[in-house]
Design a protein around this nucleic acid. Structure first.
Length: 272
DNA sequence: AGGTCGACCTGGCAGC
DNA sequence: TGCTGCCAGGTCGACC
């Protein structure tokens, strides 16, 4: 999915466009994206006022009156706002269409159908939100909190960064970028990191995610923001997708290998 | 309990 | 114009 920076970008876009609008109609073109009985999903949403748009980890949370519309985009989900009078550009990947008040429309597109849409009265009803770890850009996420999450964990640090129970919102692109920024090898066992390395890692998590939010996220293929536009962070990635190309710090070729069934990119000179 | 791996899906692209 | 295999911003459940 879109990772934290991409979801945060969408959240900010949607907060401006759909806050205060009412969901007047719900049309499911493929009910597989709805992770509850589809009739109940539609019944709960229709007529609801959108009070606010929040984010937790990689999940978008639309606050309704006593209910939450939880959207997990996973790998290829998109939420696209279509302004009143603008032609609703539904595409083959459009799986749900939400008719909003004042003539606006919200499209949910998802090529791979991994995304999850649900409406709950309490956020813990979502298995993801029930177990999710600390929010990395919130003040409560300190170096000590990170250290406590890593303690005793006998897994490669790259794999652990992808675990949303450890830190929320980090995905496969930013895990590689963060470790490069911190100068730490993705192969290091989490429990072996020194305190000063954890401090660097903590700073790198914040720096990389903040920079990516400023650039409105990374678009490889499917990611689009709430206005249907790609993000710009791909222009400044240091290692992700750059295998064989020279490291921007030392010139050594960037390496790719597979870790926990996901690609990892790193520089063996700069990351120890 | 913590760690590993397959499953869930569709589609783009490289190589033959 | 195939076909095959590999790759893709994620999460969960079954297994050891």
């Amino acid at each position: 999915m879109p990772e934290l920076p991409e979801v945060e970008t969408i959240r900010r876009d949607l907060a401006k466009t759909i806050t205060g609008l009412r969901i007047e109609s719900v049309f499911l073109r493929d009910a597989r994206v709805v992770r509850m009985p589809p009739e109940e999903f539609v019944r709960r949403l229709e007529g609801q006022l959108i009070l606010a748009v929040h984010r937790r980890g990689k999940a978008l949370l639309l606050e309704l009156d006593g209910l939450w519309f939880v959207i997990q985009l996973m790998m290829t989900g998109q939420v696209v706002y279509v302004a009143p009078g603008q032609k609703a550009a539904a595409v083959k990947e459009t799986k749900a269409v939400f008719g909003l008040s004042k003539g606006a429309t919200l499209l949910y597109n998802d090529q791979r159908l991994f995304g999850r849409l649900m409406v709950v009265s309490r956020l813990e009803e979502s298995g993801y939100l029930k177990v999710i770890g600390p929010e990395p850009l919130e003040p409560g996420f300190t170096s000590e909190v990170l250290a406590s999450q890593l303690r005793g964990r006998n897994v490669a640090i790259k794999t652990l960064l992808l675990d949303h129970k450890v830190v929320a919102g980090i995905g496969n692109i930013y895990a590689s970028e963060i470790l490069f920024r911190a100068g730490i090898s993705p192969k290091r066992k989490a429990k072996r990191l020194k305190t000063r390395e954890i401090t660097r890692l903590h700073q790198a998590i914040k720096d990389v995610l903040r920079e990516a939010v400023r650039m409105r996220g990374t678009s490889l293929r499917n990611y689009r923001d709430g206005r249907g536009m790609p993000g710009r962070y791909l222009r400044v990635v240091r290692v992700y997708g750059r295998d064989g190309q020279p490291c921007l710090e030392c010139g050594e070729p960037v390496k790719r290998f597979v870790q926990a069934q996901r690609s990892t990119y790193f520089c063996s000179q700069c990351q120890k």
